[in-house]
Design a protein around this nucleic acid. Structure first.
Length: 452
RNA sequence: GUGAGUGUAGCUCAGUGGUAGAGCUCCGGAUUGUGGAUCCGGCUGUCGCGGGUUCGAUCCCCGUCACUCACCCCA
C-alpha cells in the first residue's frame, strides 16, 4: 500500500505546522493593520464560476470534480476546486454587494488547487494569502497593497526582495508603438515576460517564432533594452524608476496618459512605506492571468525562479458576475514559496521549535495513575503545559522519553513522595532536582523554567 | 502537456551478473528511584512494479508507476 500523499499534496508534521502558523500569523496581523477583514469561501465552486476567468492556460489547470453516475463516467463536471481566491471573492462581492461596505477590504488565507506538475516551490495544493480592496479606483489602494506586502516581508526578515511594478495599459501602449497587431499582443506579452530570463536575443527569437513581424520585434526590444540595460541593478532604485518613468512618459504617455499617470502616482504614494525602497518599475512584467486591467505587481527574490506573490487591478472581473464595472485590486502572497525560501535561508526564529509540554508527569505504577492525573490537573491550573507519560514503564525510560522530546522538567510522585505529600521536580537541563510540598510544585516548575 | 535524473532497511545512502551492506533511528542490557554521554547485544528488506535476456538479474534490456529537477505557466 502506497502511503505517500497524492501527487503534489503534502502532510505537515508538527514542526512544519508551527512554522506555517507563524508565517500566516504575521501575514494576517499585517493585513489587519491595514484594515482588511477576514473572509472564507468554500473549497468547491460551480465550474462555470471559474471557467473563462484565468485565460486558456488557467482553464486547463482547474481541478474538476466529476459528476456522479453516468455523466461522471463521460467526464462531465459541474463542480471544481477553487483555482485562486480572487474569483471566489468576485463571486462573493456580486452575491452580497448590498450588504458589503462601500470599500470592501478583505483578506483570505486558504488553500487553492491547480492540476499542475509539481516542481520546486510548486505544489498542486497550496495556500494563498490574499488581500483585496473592492470599490475604489484610487491608486491609494495599489500603494497600500504594496505597503502591506512590504511590511509582511520585512517582518519575516526579508531584505532583498523586489516589488516589480507595471501596468497593463502601459504594455498595450508599448505594443501599439511596436506595431504589434491586436491579435498578436498576447503572444508578444508572453515573450516579453521572459526578458530577464532569456535575454534580449532570446526574446527576439521568441517574438519572431510567435509571428511578430521583425520590425515590431526590433522596436520593442529597443524600448525594453533601454530599461533593462546592464548595470541597472546597481542603479539606485529611485533614480532607476525615474529614468524608466521618463521614458514611459515620452513613449507611451501620448497614447495612454492614464496608465502612465497611475504608475507615477503609485510610486509617489508608496514612498513613505518600507515597500517604497523595493518597488521597481519593470515594463517587461506581464503576468499570465487574463483578468488584470491596470497596475500589476509581482514579488521577486533572487534565489527563486518563481515569484513569492503577485497581484494587480482587475476592474472588469466582478462585472462578469454582477454586470457593470466594479473596481478592484488585490495582492496574493504564496505561503509555500515564502516557506521554501525561509527554510533554505534558515530564517525561522528559534522559539518555533518549542517542546510539546513544559513539564512531564511520570507514572510510578498502575495504582498511582489517578494521583498522577490529579497532579497534572493541578499544574495545568497553574497555567503550565503538561504532558502525562501514559504507561508505567521503568522510571529511567520515562526520563529518557521526556529528554528525547525536549520537555525541560519532569515531576515524579513515587511511594516516598506520596507518603509525605511531596513531589520531586527535576530540571533536565541542569540535572538538579528537589522534593517540594505538592502545593508548591507549580512554582517550583516555573522557577526551573525561568532559569532557562 | 514536453524533457531529464533517481527508485536498495523506518531515515540517509553504499554495492555486485552468483545467498543483501554501512551509518543513524529503534529495541534490550550494563543501570529494580533518574534522561542526554559511553560500551555490549539485537530486530528490520517483495533491492518501486511488470515483463524480457540469462543456468542464474538488485545489477543488463523494454515497459510502467512514483518521486525530484527543468520547460510551459504560476503563488
Amino acid at each position: 500500500m502506497n502511503t505517500h500523499p497524492a501527487r503534489g499534496m503534502r502532510d505537515f508534521l508538527p514542526e512544519e505546522v508551527r512554522r506555517r502558523q507563524w508565517v500566516v500569523g504575521v501575514i494576517a496581523d499585517v493585513y489587519q493593520q491595514y484594515g482588511f477583514e477576514p473572509l472564507e469561501t468554500p473549497a468547491v465552486e460551480n465550474i462555470e464560476t471559474l471557467l473563462g476567468k484565468y485565460g486558456e492556460e488557467g482553464d486547463k489547470l482547474i481541478f474538476k470534480i466529476l459528476k456522479r453516475g453516468d455523466g461522471g463516467q463521460a467526464g462531465q463536471a459541474d463542480l471544481a476546486l477553487r483555482y485562486d481566491l480572487t474569483v471566489p471573492l468576485a463571486r462573493v462581492v456580486a452575491e452580497y454587494h448590498a450588504r458589503l461596505p462601500k470599500f470592501f477590504k478583505r483578506y483570505q488565507v486558504q488553500p487553492v488547487w491547480r492540476a499542475d506538475r509539481p516542481q520546486k516551490g510548486r505544489f498542486r495544493e497550496f495556500y494563498q494569502c490574499d488581500a483585496d480592496a473592492i470599490g475604489s479606483r484610487s491608486m491609494v489602494i495599489e500603494a497600500e497593497l504594496l505597503g502591506a506586502a512590504g511590511d509582511v516581508l520585512e517582518r519575516l526578515g526579508f531584505a532583498d526582495y523586489t516589488l516589480r511594478l507595471n501596468h497593463r495599459g502601459v504594455l498595450a501602449g508599448l505594443l501599439e508603438a511596436g506595431g504589434v497587431s491586436a491579435e498578436l499582443q498576447g503572444e508578444a506579452l508572453v515573450a516579453l515576460d521572459k526578458l530577464d530570463k532569456i535575454g534580449p536575443d532570446g526574446v527576439e527569437a521568441e517574438l519572431t517564432s510567435r509571428g511578430v513581424p521583425d520590425k515590431g520585434a526590433h522596436l520593442l526590444l529597443e524600448l525594453f533594452g533601454a530599461v533593462t540595460a546592464p548595470g541597472r541593478l546597481a542603479t539606485p532604485q529611485a533614480a532607476f524608476n525615474e529614468d524608466v518613468m521618463a521614458r514611459l512618459e515620452r513613449l507611451v504617455g501620448p497614447a495612454r496618459p492614464e496608465a502612465v499617470v497611475e504608475l507615477r502616482q503609485i510610486l509617489t504614494l508608496v514612498t513613505p512605506s518600507a515597500a517604497g525602497r523595493h518597488v521597481r518599475l519593470d515594463p517587461s512584467l506581464a503576468r499570465g492571468l487574463s483578468y488584470y486591467t491596470g497596475a500589476i505587481f509581482e514579488i521577486a527574490v533572487p534565489d527563486l525562479a518563481g515569484s513569492l506573490g503577485g497581484g494587480g487591478r482587475y476592474d472588469n472581473l466582478i462585472g462578469m458576475f454582477l454586470g457593470g464595472d466594479v473596481p478592484a485590486c488585490g495582492i496574493s502572497l504564496g505561503l509555500e514559496r515564502i516557506l521554501v525560501v525561509m527554510g533554505e535561508r534558515e530564517m525561522f526564529p528559534g522559539g518555533l521549535g518549542r517542546a510539546p509540554a513544559e513539564v512531564m508527569v511520570t507514572i510510578w505504577n498502575l495504582d498511582t495513575v489517578p494521583d498522577a492525573l490529579s497532579l497534572a490537573a493541578e499544574l495545568r491550573s497553574a497555567g503550565l503545559r503538561v504532558e502525562v507519560y501514559p504507561e508505567a514503564d521503568k522510571i529511567g525510560r520515562q526520563f529518557k522519553y521526556a529528554s528525547s522530546r525536549s520537555i525541560p522538567v519532569v515531576a515524579v510522585v513515587g511511594d516516598d513522595e506520596a507518603a509525605g505529600g511531596l513531589v520531586t521536580i527535576k530540571d533536565l537541563d541542569s540535572g538538579e532536582q528537589q522534593r517540594v510540598p505538592r502545593a508548591e510544585a507549580g512554582d517550583r516548575v516555573r522557577a526551573a523554567l525561568a532559569g532557562r
